[in-house]
Simulated scan of single mutants.
Amino acid sequence: MAQYLLRDGTQVTVSSDPTSFDVLTYQTMSGEAVHAVLTMKAERAILRSVDLGRLVALSDDLSVFNSAVVA
């Protein structure tokens, strides 16, 4: 999983290959690689690469989400 730093400072972890996007890669003090997104186009592509179906399936396991749904 690759860690991305979006243009607004938000950090996200996505399983997409960073070499596919316009990013600047640096290492943190702990040696972890972070990929700073350089363009709006790259940021959109990274966010589109997230498997939303998987996230929704994971949210079904969380009681916080289930209790907030009003039928």
Rank of each mutant, 00 (worst) to 15 (best):
residue 25 T to C: 09
residue 66 N to M: 11
residue 51 D to M: 05
residue 4 Y to I: 02
residue 70 V to W: 11
residue 16 S to G: 10
residue 52 L to N: 08
residue 43 E to G: 02
residue 30 S to D: 15
residue 33 A to L: 13
residue 12 V to L: 06
residue 19 T to K: 15
residue 54 R to C: 01
residue 28 T to W: 04
residue 32 E to C: 06
residue 56 V to K: 09
residue 38 L to Q: 13
residue 47 L to R: 05
residue 2 A to S: 15
residue 11 Q to M: 15
residue 67 S to D: 15
residue 58 L to A: 13
residue 2 A to M: 11
residue 26 Y to K: 12
residue 53 G to N: 14
residue 6 L to G: 01
residue 65 F to T: 07
residue 12 V to I: 07
residue 39 T to S: 15
residue 46 I to E: 01
residue 57 A to M: 04
residue 22 D to V: 03
residue 44 R to H: 08
residue 7 R to Y: 03
residue 14 V to D: 07
residue 19 T to Q: 14
residue 46 I to W: 00
residue 60 D to A: 13
residue 50 V to W: 01
residue 28 T to L: 14
residue 30 S to N: 11
residue 44 R to I: 10
residue 67 S to Y: 09
residue 50 V to T: 05
residue 45 A to E: 14
residue 41 K to S: 10
residue 10 T to L: 07
residue 41 K to V: 05
residue 7 R to I: 11
residue 47 L to C: 07
residue 46 I to T: 02
residue 6 L to V: 06
residue 7 R to C: 02
residue 36 A to D: 04
residue 47 L to N: 04
residue 50 V to P: 01
residue 8 D to P: 03
residue 56 V to Y: 12
residue 43 E to Q: 14
residue 55 L to K: 07
residue 4 Y to M: 08
residue 12 V to Y: 06
residue 64 V to M: 14
residue 39 T to G: 03
residue 42 A to N: 00
residue 28 T to G: 09
residue 48 R to P: 02
residue 52 L to S: 10
residue 7 R to F: 02
residue 70 V to C: 10
residue 2 A to E: 13
residue 18 P to M: 02
residue 45 A to Y: 02
residue 50 V to Q: 08
residue 8 D to W: 00
residue 56 V to C: 06
residue 55 L to Y: 08
residue 26 Y to T: 14
residue 38 L to N: 15
residue 2 A to W: 04
residue 7 R to N: 08
residue 71 A to C: 10
residue 32 E to P: 04
residue 45 A to V: 03
residue 26 Y to R: 15
residue 27 Q to Y: 14
residue 16 S to F: 00
residue 34 V to R: 00
residue 34 V to T: 05
residue 26 Y to M: 08
residue 25 T to D: 05
residue 60 D to R: 12
residue 19 T to C: 10
residue 36 A to Y: 09
residue 22 D to W: 04
residue 6 L to W: 03
residue 59 S to I: 01
residue 11 Q to V: 12
residue 40 M to Q: 08
residue 11 Q to Y: 14
residue 51 D to L: 04
residue 55 L to F: 04
residue 19 T to N: 12
residue 35 H to K: 03
residue 3 Q to C: 10
residue 68 A to R: 12
residue 70 V to T: 13
residue 24 L to M: 12
residue 41 K to L: 05
residue 29 M to L: 13
residue 62 L to S: 13
residue 52 L to M: 10
residue 58 L to F: 04
residue 31 G to N: 08
residue 31 G to P: 02
residue 4 Y to A: 06
residue 37 V to P: 00
residue 49 S to Q: 07
residue 12 V to H: 07
residue 34 V to C: 04
residue 27 Q to E: 15
residue 71 A to R: 15
residue 29 M to F: 13
residue 22 D to Q: 09
residue 55 L to Q: 12
residue 47 L to T: 00
residue 30 S to P: 00
residue 32 E to W: 07
residue 12 V to K: 06
residue 5 L to R: 15
residue 11 Q to A: 11
residue 18 P to N: 07
residue 49 S to H: 05
residue 22 D to A: 11
residue 63 S to L: 14
residue 59 S to Y: 00
residue 10 T to Q: 14
residue 59 S to V: 02
